[in-house]
Amino acid sequence: MSATCDISLDSILQNVGMLPSPPHAILEIIRTLEDGDASAETLARKIEADMGLLAHVLRLVNTSYYATEGRVSSIQQAIMLLGLNEIRNLACMHGIADYFQEQGATNFDYKSFICHSAGVSCVARQLARPALLNPDTAFVAGMLHDIGQLALAITLPQQFERVLDYRRTHNCTLEEAELAIIGIDHAQVGGNLMRHWHLPEEICEAIAYHHQTADIAMFCSPMSDLLHVSEVLAHALELGSSEQVPFMDENAIPRLGLTREQLAHSFGKIEEDYCDLLNILGIH
């Protein structure tokens, strides 16, 4: 399959690297995932450094979903009530969803994009536990996994439009269309962008290989296997809009140590989590 776009891969990655990054506070909060000893105080300080983020997290914590009996007026109080991981996930989820919407790409369906990202996050978090991986890292990786699509839509709008046309006319997956038109897919672009933003390598690699094929599977980390399986399951369960279920590397599930029964039993809980997440994000 040869690319029909006359822009070099280096140039594409350079363009993508110029995309505005999310607020510093969000990147700092995501980086705390690497620090197993991150304290409540450290997290609270990072959230408080961004007044907009602080206000949004407090607003979310005070919604009926969390049923907080009294009004929560500080991040320290929120962490005490709901736990450090829940507050970190809330801050990341909100910051990432906001960042996506602020980018202003034309011809880009933000709602579907956020719904799909939320769906993959829910599957990844649910399957992370039996796969003995960190559910919070899995959740954030899920939220960010398709960021390469957004980067391509913003930095190469005309080519991305041709990618969407190609997918429609050839009845293929988005990544096949990207490779045919641009010569690089959104997973590689997203992985590069995450490295450019100095996010944890576990997340960068997972995003870069979430559309893995069997021939590169030997290089894939457990987190990229998890994201790959989560992507397929999110499409199969139609969490967000789904046109077709993509290819899945057959060996990814046994590599994660998951059984078919564990997958089947997780469906109901994943769907409940997904509904809850959309409620929290105010998406209906």
């Binding site: 009845n171 293929c172 997956t173 499409h235 199969a236 139609e238 789904s242 077709q244 279920v245 993509p246 290819f247 899945m248 057959e250 599930i253 078919r260």
Partner: peptide, 12 residues
């Protein structure tokens, strides 16, 4: 229709 482009063998 959703599974139209994948082979329904093995794990799929």
């Amino acid at each position: 229709e959703l599974f139209r482009n994948v082979r329904r063998e093995g794990y799929m």
